[in-house]
Computed example of a mutant assay.
Amino acid sequence: MSTAPSQPRSEPARIIIVMGVSSSGKSTVGAALARTLHAPFLDGDQFHPEANVEKMRAGTPLTDEDRWPWLEAHTAALTQAAAKKDVAIGASSALRRIYRDFITEKAGEPVLFVYLDGTREVIGERMAKRSHEYMPTSLLDSQFATLEVPDPAEENTLHVSITDSVDKIVRTITGALDHLKKFKRWQ
């Protein structure tokens, strides 16, 4: 675990992680962004060990100790995918700065965190309307309690509003990614 500062936003990144609290739209936006960029999409939910899934299913928030192996496995997979395609998209809560710094350190290169910004009320309404395998609505308050909103002045981050359509969010993100035009995503 490192407390090294995150990369400045001006630094181009091949790894892009769509982040935010549960039900902010990470998987939906991440998958749509990946389709637009012809990039691999790796949802962080797929990398949770079974013990984490069972804790969340029981309504128990994860601890930092629960998260480190999950973050490391997800980051390793994103790094491998970016090595093959020159870009990879992930979805991860990445709620605390220390988690984002850990991801960036483990990746060994800049990572752009796209923060899906929404109010507790809007996200609560979304969460109530969806069914998730192991994330009950009772954990939303713990997600907001854990959230450290990324600081664009100190972290490699892009903030987008979740009240925009998925298409508009993806256009906003791709509009900030001119550096990806040089990558060979079609290979």
Rank of each mutant, 00 (worst) to 15 (best):
E121H: 02
T146I: 02
A94K: 01
R171T: 12
T75V: 04
K84S: 14
A34V: 10
M135S: 03
A83M: 02
L62Q: 07
S165K: 11
V53E: 05
A81V: 08
E50N: 10
S165V: 09
R96T: 09
P5A: 10
F102L: 09
R96F: 02
E72W: 00
R97M: 08
E65K: 14
R14P: 01
D64A: 11
I162M: 09
K106E: 03
Q7P: 00
A128Q: 13
T75K: 03
S6T: 10
Q46G: 04
A73H: 07
A77L: 04
A153G: 11
G90P: 04
H132D: 08
P40H: 07
G30Y: 06
T79V: 14
T146R: 01
P69N: 07
G25P: 07
A176Q: 12
A58C: 06
H179M: 01
S131E: 15
M1P: 07
V149Q: 10
R35E: 15
S161R: 15
T146N: 01
I15D: 11
M127D: 12
E72A: 12
E154W: 01
P5K: 13
D66G: 06
E65C: 03
G25A: 11
S131W: 02
V29D: 10
P150D: 04
E54T: 14
E65Y: 05
E109N: 06
A91L: 02
A73Y: 04
S2Q: 01
W68D: 02
H74T: 14
F47W: 08
E65I: 10
L42V: 10
R67G: 05
M135E: 03
I123E: 07
V114H: 11
A73V: 05
F41V: 13
V122P: 00
A51V: 14
I173A: 01
D43P: 01
S6N: 14
L78Q: 04
Y99C: 05
S165G: 11
F102H: 13
M56P: 02
W186K: 14
G108I: 08
N156S: 13
V114A: 11
T36F: 00
D101A: 15
T172E: 09
S161D: 15
H132V: 06
L116V: 14
A176F: 00
E155C: 07
E155R: 10
D164F: 05
K129Q: 14
R35T: 12
M19T: 14
A153S: 15
K182Y: 01
E105F: 08
Q143D: 05
D43I: 03
G20W: 13
T157G: 03
K168Y: 02
V53C: 02
A82D: 08
V149D: 06
A73L: 06
S10Y: 06
T60G: 01
H132N: 08
R14V: 01
L78C: 03
S24Y: 08
L158V: 13
S2Y: 00
F183G: 09
M19L: 12
P110T: 10
L139K: 04
L140A: 05
W70I: 11
G90M: 02
K182N: 09
K129G: 13
P136F: 03
T28F: 03
I173Y: 00
P69R: 05
A107I: 06
F113M: 10
R9A: 14
L95T: 02
V166A: 12
V149S: 06
F102N: 04
S131Y: 03
K55E: 04
A39D: 08
A176I: 00
I98H: 04
F144S: 03
